[in-house]
């Protein structure tokens, strides 16, 4: 056993830390670009504070959805239906009938719709053995269809003051939606890193067969992951509805792509088994900071989308490069170890 004496030092898992630091670096660069392009704005400290809160508020709904998405991807799946679930939950919770039950009824409806759709996704995938991509793609189409059907393709205005005030409330000077984001991210981090649910998620995504043979109920856990994603969408639906004071079948368009991209940029492996909540949050923040940067410079959103696309490609290339070189290193060092 040559490799016994020559084994590499155990690579500590600060791979994630490195990547998160990298994302913080990207954020700083974006801020510097902002300062350079609009120095007059940045000279006003109160504008800076407000702008940071604006960025965070814009990141809040997609951030919540990304937390759910991150769990699904780590668990070896993908959820293409998140935008559609938000639309369905938003529309369902703003029908005149639902609004008649007040704010509680609307919130309850949004959450139940999110969980129910997630449950359908999960059952189709775990027990119906559909590929996650196909199952949630079908759900994407049909949930938006149902939302259009319910709303009659009309924008449904929320007449509920409590709901509408969620987006404007600022406890302790920070928008309520940002508090919600912080709460969901915090809860997501604890759930992933400190609970048996999180451990099962990593196991199911990393090696489903090993998880199954260790006595983990892989199917049930898969269902729970999509339910969790649906629940996050329900929360996101309320947040978006309150921001727009309305809901419509086209809301949260392409949220699935933003959420997946944020998770991937944050270091979540698309093949499952690895990922971090904090990284995903940074991914979301990078996107909303870019949006903000374009807004304060009054630039067209088309260019913005191109930049976003470029960032996704760059992040994944970097990740592959790092991951490949990391595993290659181990493989090479162990090369004499498997004959």
């Amino acid at each position: 056993m040559i490799a016994e004496t020559a084994l590499p030092k155990a690579p500590k898992y600060d791979d994630n830390l490195l990547r998160n630091l990298g994302l913080v670096g990207v954020l700083l660069v974006l801020v510097v670009i902002g300062i350079v392009t609009r120095p007059e704005l940045y000279s006003d400290p109160s504008w800076v504070r407000d702008n940071i809160l604006t960025i965070l508020q814009q990141a809040s709904a997609i951030g919540v959805v990304t937390v759910g998405m991150t769990f699904v991807i780590i668990g070896g799946g993908i959820d293409l239906s998140v935008g559609a679930i938000i639309a369905l939950a938003g529309v369902w919770s703003t029908t005149l009938a639902t609004q008649s039950y007040g704010a509680g009824g609307m919130i309850f409806t949004a959450l139940v719709v999110g969980v129910a759709v997630g449950l359908v996704n999960g059952v189709l995938i775990a027990y119906g053995k559909l590929v996650p991509f196909i199952a949630t793609l079908a759900m994407l189409v049909s949930a938006r269809g149902l939302a259009a059907q319910i709303s009659g393709k009309q924008t449904q205005v929320s007449a509920n003051e409590t709901i509408n005030s969620l987006a404007t409330a600022k406890p302790l000077g920070i928008p309520l939606l940002v508090w919600i984001l912080a709460l969901v991210v915090g809860a997501g981090w604890v759930l992933l890193n400190r609970t048996t649910f999180g451990r099962r998620t990593v196991a199911v995504g990393g090696n489903p067969e090993a998880a199954r043979l260790a006595g983990i109920n892989v199917k049930r856990h898969t269902v729970l992951l999509y339910v969790l994603s649906g629940l996050c969408c329900g929360i996101g639906a309320i947040m978006l509805t309150s921001q727009a004071t309305s809901a419509q079948a086209a809301m949260a368009n392409l949220y699935e792509l933003d959420a997946i991209a944020a998770a991937i940029i944050g270091g979540t492996l698309l093949s499952g088994g690895r990922g971090t909540i904090v990284g995903a949050l940074f991914g979301v923040l990078v996107f909303s900071t870019i949006t903000n940067l374009f807004a304060i410079n009054n630039l067209a959103t088309e260019v913005q989308n191109m930049v976003k696309g470029g960032i996704i490609v760059a992040a994944v290339l970097l990740q592959q490069f790092r991951y490949r070189s990391f595993t290659n290193l181990l493989r090479r060092r162990n090369v004499g170890n498997n004959s």
């Binding site: 898992y13 048996t196 451990r199 990593v202 196991a203 990393g206 090696n207 067969e209 090993a210 998880a211 043979l213 260790a214 006595g215 983990i216 088994g273 690895r274």
Partner: peptide, 21 residues
């Protein structure tokens, strides 16, 4: 490798895969 181990996870999490609960 394909039926028992989470190769990227540390030894202790692999050892407790059936008992962490």
């Amino acid at each position: 490798k394909s039926q028992a181990l989470l190769l990227d996870e540390p030894v202790f999490k692999n050892m407790t895969l059936a008992s962490f609960t």
